[in-house]
Design a protein around this nucleic acid. Structure first.
Lengths: 244, 244
DNA sequence: CAGTGGTCTAGACCACTTT
DNA sequence: AAGTGGTCTAGACCACTGA
């Protein structure tokens, strides 16, 4: 293992241990003690503990006080943890797909009252509306609609801009950094137009994210609605007793 | 603030800061520096940082390097974070309800092939099946079905046992500690029987958890399926760029 | 009782923001 | 330049497990 510059020590140790776990380098699923790892890797025990805490939170390992640290076989099967979804292209790649993006629509609309409230702008404010479809090998998988206040994205955008991931689009076109989404999980029966676009029958049950994206200072940047093909993309979550 | 025994220092500091944030004790949303908090509370800066990291992860605050730590007004509105749902009664209480539990069924069935695989038992193994309904003021809100291998819950249980939260039931009746669930989020159109129980029309879209509960050593203890009234219970999630 | 993970400390240095 | 959060260290003590 090489200790270099750039990513933090903790990140390097995390990645290193994750790789060893995935490779099955630890016999019988037992991971060496924190003290041993620290001296092996030439870092402090604190750094090792931070790395292990991340892996525990991801579900890759579990720890038993007084006993040891162990690989969690089930945890390795999780391909995408719901809280860590960032871009849909990356999400699809994590599922082993090689996604394509199609920009369906790029237009301006007036903000409805609820939209305006969520985006903290006045009702009627012009919004840039961007509809996109993510496909795997001609199979549509995700349909998204994004709404940006013109105060955030002032000028027009072309299809090439719109095809980029939202966070990249916002950073390049508006100089704003997307930090997190607050997402409502809503079960829907797909309307005919959306069902058509996703290539399923009208009325098919689907999961939907209805969400607002914020920057690091908790200012709303974008309002989004996304619809997923449940048969092609299944979300998995780890629920815990104590938040770790 | 009193520093006592029992909950860890970090937990005490977390609770204390959370209370002050909720009370609006910090002017203009600015939280004192880590150094200042540490000396005020008589703990190390590390402890303060651990507490602030938890609050940041919960969405209650955000931090800007070089600038400071601030209250996140949106974060305070989140009543239940998906990853932290543990018992449904507690979930409903968090939503301001005063829930009632009705045990619908308590029976033994043979494990189907997929059930057996998820529970890591042989197909045909007898399972204790427990169906429950959670209500708020006569309105059904959550319908759950739990399946326990007889190897976990060997003896019979009565309705009073079954009415308890699952983790409590397992601890008391089987001496096993539930540590986490791996949950699939599945959108469904409610079948007639389940729709009836939930008091909605057949075919109503609903969110479903299909999940396996494990102990700390990643051994499966229970297989569960839950259905929610979307109009009464909405799940909210915080999605982040970097897992914190 | 030796070894493990869990908690906490005091202090160093860095990167970044603000004045 | 001063102040803030971000990273990392070395070491102490505790709680728990298992031989």
């Amino acid at each position: 293992m090489v200790i270099g510059r750039g990513p933090s020590l903790t990140e390097q140790v995390t990645a290193h241990l994750k790789a060893r776990i995935t490779d099955g380098a630890f016999e019988e699923g037992r991971i060496p003690s924190e003290t041993e790892l620290a001296s092996d890797l030439g870092v402090s025990r604190t750094t090792v503990r931070d790395a292990l805490s991340r892996l525990e939170h991801e579900g890759a390992i579990y720890r038993r006080q007084g006993s040891g640290t162990f690989v969690n076989p089930q945890g390795l099967q999780i391909r995408s943890r719901l809280e860590e979804i960032w871009g849909y292209e990356q999400l699809l790649r994590d599922h082993g797909y090689t996604p394509a993006v199609r920009v369906l629509s790029l237009r301006t609309e007036s903000a409805s009252a609820p939209d305006a409230e969520a985006l903290e702008v006045a009702a009627g404010t012009p919004l840039l509306v961007m509809d996109k479809l993510f496909l795997e090998d001609d199979d549509p998988v995700v349909l998204t609609s994004n709404r940006f206040p013109r105060a955030v994205v002032g000028h027009d955008a072309d299809e090439a801009d719109a095809a980029r991931p939202i966070y990249e689009f916002l950073e390049r076109q508006a100089g704003r950094k997307l930090a997190y989404y607050l997402s409502d999980l809503v079960p829907v029966a797909l309307q005919a137009d959306r069902a058509d676009l996703l290539g399923v029958a009208a009325g098919t049950p689907a999961l939907s994210f209805e969400e607002v994206g914020y920057d690091a200072e908790a200012r709303p940047l974008v309002l989004a609605a996304s619809y997923f093909r449940d048969d092609l993309l299944r979300f998995r979550l780890m629920r815990r007793r104590t938040p770790a």
